[in-house]
Design a protein around this nucleic acid. Structure first.
Lengths: 151, 151
DNA sequence: CGTGAAATGAACTCTTT
DNA sequence: AAAGAGTTCATTTCACG
């Protein structure tokens, strides 16, 4: 939507102001604007979640190795039984199995993995919207940056 | 980036063509363009993954109930030990605990939940890029649509 | 707010089926 | 001949400073 249209809807505010606001939201890492690619459209019709156990001291390095892989769309640390949680895309289950056993399994520091297929997503991050009740004006951009940019 | 700039970089192609292509990618659900909100910027500094067991026959209904909740950013079916995998945002761990035990726990059909904190994300969907090696021109928009729009 | 740039809609071509 | 992709061009609208 053009900024001018947004300005019209927001009421008594200039189009220039709207553009400044959007710039600020992006600069302060409050929103991220971009395109998300549908892996199914590329023939990557299989999605799976992996739990990964890592030998102590290798966690960060393993996480970054995984994040660097093109099949991997999501990597996060996790508390609890497992150390890392990742999501991967594959052409088919054979492709997935090869990836888990040959690629992930051979990253130094990976102790154990377990795989769960994700047959269908019902809701995804890009659909998440701000809860109404939230006290929105609470935090400054300073505190946001201090907490780290990652969502 | 303006479409005209894209057209320049793509080589011998008109700026109008570039915009038609982008329109098509969106219409055919190959890419999704939008903004992702950083929950930390809203004071939702705690992220957690939940595994949910559902009593047989209630799966779809429970999944949709969860997806409707504003605290929930991600809902997916899962094979294996658990039926559903979701991600939630909370103000703090107290808020999270209340949400899990009072809100999720009271959805009819939810049999069991287990919660894992997500201390930090290393890579996320919006950072995922198309693997180079992929045979990109393979599938038509028909087959994409037939596979369903969900990513 | 004025100006240059970008988006839009419509007509036309080319190719493929 | 019909559908799809790309081009050109006139007009409206927007983004930028």
């Amino acid at each position: 939507m053009p900024s001018s249209e947004l300005a019209r809807r927001l009421g008594p505010v200039s189009e220039r102001t709207v553009r400044y606001r959007i710039e600020r939201l992006i600069a302060e890492d409050i929103i991220h604007v971009g395109a998300i690619i549908n892996p199914k459209a590329l023939g990557l019709v299989v999605t799976a979640d992996l739990w990964i156990e890592v030998v102590p001291g290798h966690l960060r390095r393993v996480a970054e190795s995984l994040a660097a892989l093109p099949q991997v769309s999501y990597v996060a640390y996790s508390t609890g039984e497992r150390d890392l949680s990742i999501q991967v895309y594959a052409r088919d289950t054979g492709d997935l199995h090869h990836f888990v056993s040959e690629v992930v399994g051979n990253i130094p520091g990976v102790a154990r993995t377990s795989t769960m297929l994700v047959p269908e997503k019902v809701k995804d991050v890009h659909q998440w919207d701000i809860p109404e009740l939230l006290p929105t004006a609470s935090r400054t951009s300073e505190s946001v940056r201090a907490q780290g940019g990652r969502t």
